[in-house]
Design a protein around this nucleic acid. Structure first.
Lengths: 353, 353
DNA sequence: GTTAGCACTCGAAGTTGTTGAGTGCTAACA
DNA sequence: TGTTAGCACTCAACAACTTCGAGTGCTAAC
């Protein structure tokens, strides 16, 4: 069977209506719509075909049809393709007042990202997530060891765009001032300008050797630093709007909703979205749409997830994403995400100069 | 009308049964229980009295009774009084395996507190919150300004029990090394050993004067530091187990649950629980029970909240708390909280030595 | 290929009756 | 005077049944 243009039009009509109403849509509803002038009977025939092809399904006999995952997929792909064409229209999108709200808090990256999640949730009425940028490609900018008191050293590491990590290191005895100075020189020589992912046990080993006779004493200093670096390269995830999940009956039953909340709270699972830039079809503008089973997290199999990529600086990227029901306003979501990443990119670019 | 002993016993029986079953409890159920041997008719009379006195209420005619807020209050007060007596029994409570789980991550206070919230949620099946300690009574331990690059200074401030705050400060030009040194000496002279709440505009003003001719240039350095201190004294709130809310039908309907989730996510509102150590009746062991309308947050008026106080060090305290339905296992919750705070106190005490 | 017509399906919603847990009241009892 | 048995009454919850209507698939005619 072939998927001719009329079938596609009908499918689109079905999906659009379903997205709006949330109820199975029947043949009469479609036949009454302007555009294609066909009787309900004809629509019925086409619908039977579409069902056979797997794009729609019937919750039960004598009910209308709802889109299947495959149906959504087709719809989204179509939409993304259209969006790619009408690109020039984008310049017209007026800046909304998110802009200011966002900028108000720019001083700390974590706060900003958390804020982004919140604004996004507020604007879309879906649950949202924002992953911190992947620092592995960033360079170390500054390292410093300071003596806080007799038994404690403080290691401060600044990487990339002013992300600061601290680590307290316990020591047995106070380190003489000049030794500390030497140590700082050593650390900066070895680490400054080096990308985070290059700092591994091996490099630390080399440094230990350089430290010469102090190597033993400095054992856990280096370990502490390695620790801080590792900590810096851990990706953090911010979420918001979890309560929005309850707004959609198809997700709102106690069991599903509970699991979803858990995933959002736990956050670890959401890391699955940051790695794979390859999978997923609609990869335009760095935007990816995962529908139902396409999501890498099993708990989210009844949801759709849309993610977009923002760039903090060359090669340092993170994702912002939306988690909602499969019956999601994909169009609006994609637009919103696109605008928001644009805005973020601008903020980061300006910030840097 | 007087609340004699028998009435109290009946009330307790009603509440206990209701806590277990969650269903309105009728006169027969109570009369069949061992303890007091009374016919259902007698119980009915007593119940009518209890209702008149406002301790219980009827969802509708021909249904059993459920406790009112006042009823819960009486019950909790009674329980707390008993607990105060059987104090010696506490030594017997076996350490459970939370202990190790907790200790595993002690290195960062934030991680620890987040973990505490999680463990508590896991053990009780309620939503939980943990507020960070109130640093206002802590002393500054260490301050340092470092030049990160030509236009940026990094201020590091360590307060109290190794809580580290960072602040990036933009400057117009590179500060000469010796000036930086002087500045650091100045900062440490003025700030080290001073409690966080004492650092205010005035003190900063004095420091600015001391800085002499550099005062102007250093304007936003000091501002930055004040900022960092303020940041340090902001109380953070960690939450967990939000999904547990959905487990209790009386809170689980979309509207209420949604609002609750919002409060838990927003966290700001939860700060209302940290201030008032005075209100609330059951103030033993630093444990407070807020029932229904007693909660300082309106959204939580259908919930009960139980909080306990932990002590990070002398005078530096925070709260851990549980948010659940009014039909909450108060006994278990109080015990769990008491054990957990005990454990925390031990951890912090050992850590310090 | 399209459409009107028709019999059929089946969930949703409304109706009705039954059940049973629970009540309040009264009268008798200890 | 407090306690209890007995009884009529109430009312949510449940199940059985009906009705309604949106929707279907199929067939025959255009």
């Amino acid at each position: 069977m072939e998927l001719d243009e009329r079938k596609v039009k009908i499918l689109q009509a079905i999906i659009k209506t379903y997205l709006e109403t949330g109820e199975p849509v029947g043949s009469r509803t479609i036949s009454k719509m302007e555009g294609l002038n066909l009787s309900s009977a004809t629509i019925r025939n086409e619908m039977a075909d579409l069902e056979e092809m797997g794009y729609i399904l019937q919750p039960h006999t004598s009910a209308g049809r709802i889109p299947s995952d495959a149906g959504y997929r087709l719809y989204v792909d179509q939409m993304m393709a259209e969006k790619a064409l009408e690109r020039e229209e984008r310049a017209l999108v007026p800046k909304d007042d998110e802009h200011e709200k966002l900028l108000a808090k720019v001083d700390r990256l974590e706060t900003l990202l958390q804020q982004v999640a919140k604004v996004l949730a507020y604007n879309t009425n879906y649950a949202t997530m924002v992953t911190g940028p992947n620092y592995k490609n960033t360079n170390v900018k500054f390292v410093q060891l300071s003596q806080v008191d007799d038994t404690q050293l403080l290691a401060v590491i600044v990487v990339g765009s002013n992300v600061i990590k601290n680590k307290m290191i316990d020591v047995d005895e106070r380190i003489p001032n000049d030794e500390l100075l030497k140590l700082n020189v050593l650390l900066n020589t070895f680490l400054t300008g080096v990308s985070v992912k290059e700092i591994d046990l091996e490099l630390i080993q080399t440094m230990k050797q350089q430290a010469g006779i102090y190597a033993d004493i400095l054992e856990h200093i280096f370990d502490g630093i390695l620790d801080a670096v590792r900590q810096a390269s851990e990706t953090e995830v911010y979420t918001s709007g979890a309560n929005n999940i309850l707004k959609y009956p198809e997700l709102g039953d106690m069991n599903k909703a509970g699991e979803l909340l858990e995933v959002l709270e736990e956050k670890k699972a959401l890391n699955h979205f940051i790695a794979d830039d390859d999978s997923g079809v609609s990869n335009q503008y760095g935007i990816q749409v995962y529908i139902g089973d396409e999501t890498p997290v099993e708990t989210l199999n009844d949801c759709s997830v849309v993610t977009a990529t923002y760039e903090l600086e060359e090669g340092v990227r993170g994702k912002i994403g939306i988690i909602g029901p499969k019956r999601m306003d994909y169009d609006k979501v994609v637009t919103t995400l696109r605008n928001l990443t644009d805005e973020l990119d601008t903020i980061f670019k300006n910030k840097k100069t």
